[in-house]
Every structure is written in C-alpha cells, then in structure tokens.
Design a protein around this nucleic acid. Sequence first.
DNA 1: ACCATTTGCTAAATCCATTTAGCAAATGGA
DNA 2: TCCATTTGCTAAATGGATTTAGCAAATGGT
Lengths: 338, 338
Amino acid sequence: MAGVSKKRVTLADVARLAGLSSAAASMILTGRPDTRLSAEAHRRVHEAAAQLGYRPNLAAQALRTDKTRTIAFISDYVATTRYANGLIRGALAAAQEAGHVLLLLETGGEPDREVQAIEAALDRQVDGIIFAAMRAREVFVPTLPSATRVVMLNGTSSRFPLSVLPDEYAGGRSAVELLVSAGHRDHIALVGHNQIAEQGLFRSDTVARRIAGIHSAMADHGLSFAAAESCWEWEPHHGFELTLKILAQRPDVTALLCLNDRLAFGAYQALAEAGRSVPDIAIIAFDNDEIAGYLRPGLTTVALPHEEMGSAAVKLLLSSDSAGEHLVPMPIVSRASI
Amino acid sequence: MAGVSKKRVTLADVARLAGLSSAAASMILTGRPDTRLSAEAHRRVHEAAAQLGYRPNLAAQALRTDKTRTIAFISDYVATTRYANGLIRGALAAAQEAGHVLLLLETGGEPDREVQAIEAALDRQVDGIIFAAMRAREVFVPTLPSATRVVMLNGTSSRFPLSVLPDEYAGGRSAVELLVSAGHRDHIALVGHNQIAEQGLFRSDTVARRIAGIHSAMADHGLSFAAAESCWEWEPHHGFELTLKILAQRPDVTALLCLNDRLAFGAYQALAEAGRSVPDIAIIAFDNDEIAGYLRPGLTTVALPHEEMGSAAVKLLLSSDSAGEHLVPMPIVSRASI
DNA sequence: ACCATTTGCTAAATCCATTTAGCAAATGGA
DNA sequence: TCCATTTGCTAAATGGATTTAGCAAATGGT
C-alpha cells in the first residue's frame, strides 16, 4: 500500500522534498551565517521542514557536535530539604528559557553515588553540571575528566570557583537593621546561635556568614544581645526549649532573632505557653519556609532566594564567566511578627 | 610529544588493545548471549575496557538502539506543591536502581508548555514518560507520536490507562476507623468537606475518593457527623475559621476529622484561641505534610505515600504491565493528637 | 575573449556503537 | 580422506546530523 510510513522524519527527507542536499538543509536549518545558499533555497528548506514536521534527532546531533542542550543538576539531597524545591524550580525555568533541559541526579552525599551521578551525566554528554549542596560546606567533587563546565550552587569548592550563594552576610545585617529600626535595642535575644557554626566548622559555610552579618550589624549599633542560646540542630522543638529558657532568664526581652523559621515556629509555641503574645514580643527569622506564612501572626523573615539562585546557576553555567562567587540578595518578607 | 591524548576512549580503542574487532568488543561488553566468542576473548576485552576506563558513548548508543536509559518526568507544578518533592525523590531512587536517569520537565499546566516538554523529551529519545499531576483531575496530554511508554502519576488519563494513585478510599476509611476505635462516635466533626469535591468536579479525583471512603466507613458504623463545614481551599486560615464556627455550633464535639494537615494546622490555632486543648479534642488529618510533625502535640495523619508512588511509577514504566490503576496504600502516621 | 573570482551547491568523511552477513579454520562423521 | 558442521571472529552497513573539501556555472575585470 502507498501507506504513510510512520518512520521518523530525517534531515534527508527534508532535503529531498526541498530538492537539495542534506548538507544544504543542515546549514540552512542550523542558521549558519556565512553560507552562500540562495534565499530561494532557504525558503524551500524551511517550508519542507515545516510541512514534514521535522525534528532533528538529538542523539545524532550530540554524537556529531558534543552538545545536548542538557544540564545535569546533581544535588546531595533533594530529599531531606524543602529547599531543593525552589532551587530546582528556578533552574528549571532558566533552563527552559534557554532551550535547555534538566537531568536530575541525587547522591545522598555519598562519594560513590557522586561518582556514579557524574558518570551518568558525562555519559549523556551534558553541556554542564550544577552541583547543588544542601548542607555541606565544601562539596567533595571527584575528578572530572573533560573540560565540563561546572557551577556550585549553595556551596563552594576549591576545584570549581564558579558558585552561586545567598548573600547571607547582608541578610544577617538586614535582620538586625529591621529590629533596630523598629525600636529594639538592648532587649534582643538570639535563638540558635552556634559557636561552632560561627567558626565555619559546622553546617554550611553560608550560615556562618549569616551569623557574622548579624554580629557586625549589632556591633555597628554598639549593641549586644540580652541573651543568646545555642543548639546544634534547628528544629521547632529546639526553638521551643531555648525560648522557654530565655524567657526564664530574661523576662524583659522584647525581640527574638531566630536563626531560622523552624526555631521561630518553636518560639511561637513557647510564647503561647508562657502567656506572651507575638507582636508584643517581636520575632524575626530566616529562610521564609512554607510555615512562615502559616503562623499567626505571620512571621517576618529574611528569605532564602532559592528560585533566584537556581536560575542564576543555570544562567552562569550557560554564560562565559569563569570565576567568582555570585551572591544573590536575601529579601525581607514582612508579615506581622514585628 | 608522546603525550597522553585526552580524547574520549572509544570502543575501537578497547578492541584494538584487546587485539579484536570492535564488533567482537561490542558483543562482549553488551553481554550478548549466543555469541561464540572465546572465553579468552572475553577476558581480554573486559581487561582492556577496565584498563582504559572505557565508557560507551550514550549518544551513539541511542542513535543505534533508540534506548537512552532516560525517563522524562513531566509535572504540571514542581512549584506550587510540596508534594512533588517526595514523588521526585521516589522516582529518582527507583530510576537509579534500574540504571536509569530522570529528565525533569515542568509545564505549569499550560498546554503549549506541555507540548514543548513532550517534544523536548521525545527529541532526547526518552525510554518513557511519567506525567505527574499535582492538581488536575484528568490530565490533558497532547498526542504522542511514537509508541512511547507512559505512566500517569497521581492522576488519570483516558488515553493512558497506566496510572499510580494513592489509595484514598481506603485511607479515608482508615481515618474513620481510627477515630471510632478510639471511642469517638457521635461527636465527630468534618472539616473541609466539600460538596463539589465529592462529585469529583473539583480538585483531584483522588480527593473525591478520600471523601467517599470517609462516608462509607461512617455509614458502616451507622454514624453521621455532628457537624460538617466546607470550604473551597484548604489552607490553615480556612481550618482556623471553620473550626471556630464548629466550636460555636457544637461545643460538644470530641473529634475533628480534617481533610488535610493544613486545615488541621488552623484547627490547632482555633482550639488554642478557644481555650481547648488537643488531645482533649482529638484531631486526625491527611497528607503527612512536614508541619504535621512540628505541631504540638504531634498530628496523627493518614500519609500520602509520595515516595512509594514515585518509585512505583518508575517501576511500572519499566515493567511490561499494560493497563490499570495501581493503588498505593496510605499509612497512618500516629503522633499524639488522638 | 580570456583568466580570476564569486556564487551556489554537493559528495563524502565523521562522530561511535550495534548488528548482519559471511569468511576461514577447526572439528566431526563415515 | 572428503564433505558437513561448528567455532571464532571480522568487514561493512547502519542510525542521522554536521562539516570539510571542492566542483561547475556565473560573473567581473581588462
């Protein structure tokens, strides 16, 4: 039968319909600049391609050109952290805008899975790799054979100097500034402060910067904290306990600076338990977790700009910048807790 | 100089080192069964491959075999919903286990972006597509040309009968069972109940099943709700308002059945405001959102098994099953709210 | 009118792995 | 010893796009 073949439409088919060689068709469709093909030839090829619904075979293209319009997004944990979501979303949007696509890989922070992920990415000839670190300070990155372009996202690596980070130092400063400009001075308590974090030995490097920013702004105003309770982890129940302790020591505090929203969540619960209410005692925190908007009254917080970071990473990867830390500002999300 | 060439190691290189043809090397490395190559040849090829650190070029492989060991995960929103995370995580784990990799695409629910995403996936010769629906009841899926394998995740489509869904009906039943076995009978209030949802016209189809399960279990026990307040959206502040209303109408309620955790979150706030406390009035909800564990006392909830669903979708895609809804059980996560 | 360019296009090589068809040597059977 | 198999392996085609080298015709300069 003279049936419709269901085979894939190839460049050769387009060329044939246009009455030209596939070389010509290729040059025209890829928009080569210095070709000397006639306007008429251009017209015919484009028409033929449209008519047949031609889509280039990316595998063939990749084989020839070593470009896949694909970016590997390798993260240690998509899992454990709600942060990954925003990063991925931003990266996805930027990638799509640039006509690229994202290959998602997870390593769980285990070196052998990291190697596997990198190999899987390289096997697929990705155009570049984004290493997203949710926790680690310095990411362990196995040797990359080729001259693959790499961007570190929310982490740093001595081997790959290109990185995108939240501007935690400025963020820390602006939290203090907001409190001070709301009239708080000598009765501010710090919740979650961590000695070791401050030395950059624990948690992410960026959190150390957050704390450094806070102290620098306090110093600029000649202030110091009325109380500062520290803990290793920053979950709601830690915030709860720490706040109870602070309230017992210093019933005169007027503001709580919590190092993240989950600590603040616990602080709300502790204040309720102690019969104190929230805009009465002001609270500011960091991250802009989902819960910040659920609390009553809404929690004012210095947001981690995840989406912007994700998209910055992709743009950086696709640009020709060769080094440096790219800091993304942390905006204050004002709700009703101050 | 006799320098080390940094070119990629190809199959031909391996074959040369092993003193065989690339045909032989290919057959040996792909583990073909009926080849008649000698044990010695096998040894030499594997040795050469290991020595050179050979990795097959997937683009070439894909070109020849039409297989890429890549699965497209196309979702409407990675964004808006915290659910996506677990689905992706589960899918990622299952894919990795099967030696596959995930291509992540997002459509925002817009038909033209759906088409783009599908084209991007097909261009890359993915082995299959998972359509993850976060919201929609019936997903709009544009025509797929080839015989691509497709699995619907958390949604259904008449065109693609293979789907993975949470077993909401059973989940709804078990919430009621738990309440009843804790001694609650005639003073249970339903929070968030939605007429239209029940008719399957709004929200996801699966939520309608949740509600149907609840009613069926109530009926089995010959019970009916003391109060049932409905609303269109299920955010914390809705739960707050609805609960206040219920408390005013029926101060005698002993248990709240909230249709999701965020409603329950608001219910906690309302109970606190009304001077009632939580294990005193029992609460059970659905989803097992992150916040369920943050609440004090912890919220008992019927969990959406996102990870299991994601991994089930991948396994299904890679299997040879050809039709049917695969229901994943919703486990009860017991905390302290009952 | 004659050589030098320019214009417009194509043949063929290339990227790399898989697979079919088939050759030569070794073995088996009588 | 001679033909028929079996064993062990290879040459060459294939998949689809890109790119280099280069051919033939048209145009330009004098």
